[in-house]
Amino acid sequence: MRPQADQILRTIATTLITQYLPGIEKENEKTELGLSALLMMVVSEEFDRAAHRRIEENNALRRIFAESLPAIKDDDLKRRVREASEKAEDDYHMSVLDKLNCELQEVFIELHTHIEAIEGEGARHINEAIWTELENWTKRREFTIWEMAFAMLTKAATRNEGE
């Protein structure tokens, strides 16, 4: 098996930060290289989860769509939500997964707007499910390297008092 792309990116980023960054003197070049290395780590993190995140999210959105159908009062929206709940992945290229994910999210926003305006226990239950999904939406997009990034930026940003 060949090294995976995420591993290659992480390794190159570590080499840049530990071996090359300390030798650079110009502040802007140092920051540029440091940020580039950190972005490689971000991309590495995203690489591993990219397909999973989109497919998991599409499944979650379709589940909410299906559960919401009885509560939707607008026929046109109901039709579109039903159609969206039946859309499935048939191509796993990231660009195609992204396109479907964006389509589903557009419907999700419309559904949320509609549900917010409806009174009653059923609508409140769906609204809560939507907010739980919004929490998951945010979590799926979190990156873990920011602490390291902050520390690096602080070091790079410290100016000599004489400057």
Binding site: E32, L35, E135, F143, W146
Partner: peptide, 26 residues
């Protein structure tokens, strides 16, 4: 690079902050 980096990290953290705020009021 700072534009790419700034947009990536700030939208992640700001999104988390906004979600927490909205959970308090919604």
């Amino acid at each position: 690079t700072i534009i790419c980096f700034g947009g990536m990290f700030a939208s992640d953290l700001q999104g988390r902050i906004l979600l927490r705020q909205m959970r308090e009021v919604s």
